[in-house]
Lab assay of single mutants.
Amino acid sequence: MRVFPVYAPKLIVKHARIFLTGVIWVKDLGRLEFEKGRFLLPRKSLPKVKQAILELNELIEAQN
């Protein structure tokens, strides 16, 4: 598990694309899981977490 002390979308996306499957922890967002290079949306999450995951997945799609 990698810990990101700040929310840096480009760096987080780079990590997810390299490792494809895993878990990261982002300060103020908490634990985020990714599989096959995409972030998974938890069943229950705060609106800011949901927005961050959608933003990260959009960045991943834009890079493909």
Rank of each mutant, 00 (worst) to 15 (best):
K10Y: 12
V49C: 06
G30V: 02
Q51W: 11
P42A: 09
T21Q: 13
D28C: 15
L29D: 01
N57C: 04
E61K: 06
V6R: 06
K48D: 05
V26W: 05
V49Q: 07
Y7W: 12
I18C: 14
F39P: 03
E58A: 10
V49N: 03
R2P: 15
A62N: 10
S45H: 13
G30I: 02
K14A: 14
E33C: 14
L29E: 01
E33D: 15
E55Y: 09
R17A: 12
L56T: 00
M1P: 15
I53P: 00
K14S: 11
A16K: 01
K10Q: 12
V49L: 12
K50H: 07
P42T: 09
P9D: 02
K50N: 06
V6A: 04
P9W: 02
P47G: 09
K27Y: 15
F4I: 03
D28Q: 13
L54N: 08
V6H: 06
K48P: 05
K50E: 06
H15C: 06
A8V: 11
P47W: 11
A8M: 14
V26G: 01
P9V: 03
E58M: 10
Y7G: 01
I60H: 04
N57D: 01
P9Q: 03
K50W: 10
K48W: 06
K27N: 15
M1S: 15
K14M: 14
L11A: 11
V3I: 02
F34R: 01
R31K: 14
I12P: 01
Q63W: 12
F34G: 01
I18S: 08
F19M: 12
K36C: 13
K14G: 09
F34P: 02
K50V: 08
G22H: 02
K50T: 07
I60A: 07
N57E: 03
V49K: 12
R31C: 14
L59W: 08
L46M: 11
N64P: 09
A8H: 11
N57I: 03
R31N: 04
S45R: 14
T21A: 10
V13G: 05
F34K: 00
R38H: 08
L41A: 09
I60F: 08
K50Y: 07
K14E: 13
F34V: 04
V3T: 12
R17D: 07
V49E: 04
N64W: 03
D28M: 12
R17K: 06
Q51Y: 10
Y7I: 02
Q51K: 12
I24E: 00
H15A: 04
F19V: 14
L54M: 11
I12Y: 01
L32I: 14
K36I: 04
K27C: 15
R31P: 02
P47H: 10
G30H: 02
F19Y: 14
